Simulated assay, not measured.
Amino acid sequence: MHELHSIQIEPIIQKALEEDWGYGDWTTDLCVEADRPARARIICKEATMVAGVDVAAAVFHKVDPQLNVQIKAPNGTAADNRTELLFVEGRARSILKAERVALNLMARMCGIATLTRELVKALEGTRTQLLDTRKTTPGLRILEKSATVIGGARNHRFGLCDGVIVKENHIRAAGGISAALGRLHESLPPTLKIEVETTNLDEVKEALSAGADIIMLDNMSVELMKEAVALINGKALVEASGNVRLHNIRDIAQSGVDFISTSSVITGARWSDLSLLFDV
């Protein structure tokens, strides 16, 4: 999920603008003449991975379709401090009314992409791929997951309907791993894979025996993950999850897992420092 269509992002932009504008922009409407022209640029004030510049452009076009918006640094650009990311010219009022929403969405996405790229770089030379999770800001999932892909990760399931993950509470509620997978195999569409969360080797053995397609090793030590990978021996894909950070992600990858999933690419990302500046 990288390229976003206007159908996907327009509802987010519409709601964000409604929230920001309320019932009017006193400052802009009273201080700035209606037809005063202006030119402005979005720059980054630190090194950042560019993400969401297309979303920012869409915000300006939503506010005023007559604005001339030019993307100067495409998504996926490793931008240095003070790099110009986007140029816009047209009515000053329109630029001012779009400014905060455009910066908020883009800064959030740049921050996620930047952190994601750091984690992906830490995996270079291993066979392990980085995945995101469903721990996203409500209403912004499609933007945040797009940002992780721009940073070099792959998307895990977008929603509950995309795949099956039998987690600890599902196992308890269903009466065990075997019972849960038995019911799934009876009724699940055959195109969907089944993933099972495990916390020890006994659960790994049960998930493997029950026919799991993917086995998640949740909060296991690296040594225990190595044992689990050897036990699975290619009979299922293996995903590691839990307490993944930049300082330990490479050690986890070297256990031999296929994937590492972490919510930290989103929950641990800070916003990139961006500014919109009017030309004098």
Results as ranks from 00 to 15, higher is better:
L192C: 07
N104A: 01
L184S: 04
D29I: 03
T199H: 13
V196A: 04
R82V: 03
V101S: 05
K167A: 10
D25Q: 11
L105K: 01
E89N: 09
I215V: 11
A113Q: 07
E3T: 12
L140H: 02
M225H: 15
S275K: 03
G111V: 02
A16G: 03
N104F: 04
A269P: 11
D162E: 14
V229N: 10
T136A: 02
E223K: 15
I215E: 06
A102M: 04
A269R: 14
Q8Y: 03
P74W: 05
P189E: 05
L201K: 03
T191M: 05
L192H: 01
N233T: 11
A40Q: 11
D218P: 13
S261Q: 10
A173V: 00
L140D: 01
L188Y: 09
D218L: 07
E227Q: 15
A34G: 01
I42N: 12
R93V: 02
H2G: 14
R117I: 07
L246N: 09
W271Y: 00
L130N: 09
L103A: 08
A228M: 08
L119F: 15
R91D: 02
W21R: 12
I232T: 06
T77Y: 00
G182E: 09
P65C: 07
K121A: 15
L96T: 03
A173H: 09
L274M: 07
A253H: 14
T267D: 01
M225T: 12
L85W: 02
E10C: 01
E3M: 12
K145F: 00
K145Y: 01
Q66P: 02
S264F: 13
G139H: 11
I150P: 10
W26K: 02
V280Q: 12
L123C: 11
Y23L: 00
E206G: 04
R91K: 15
A228S: 14
K167N: 10
L115T: 06
F158H: 14
K45S: 07
V88P: 00
C44A: 13
A34H: 07
G139L: 07
S146D: 06
N243D: 14
I43P: 11
V59Q: 03
D251F: 08
N81C: 09
G242R: 09
R250I: 08
V280P: 13
A174H: 08
N169P: 00
A180G: 09
G163W: 03
G159M: 05
Y23D: 01
G182F: 02
H170W: 13
E118K: 15
A102E: 04
R82E: 13
D258H: 10
A230H: 15
N219H: 08
L4W: 08
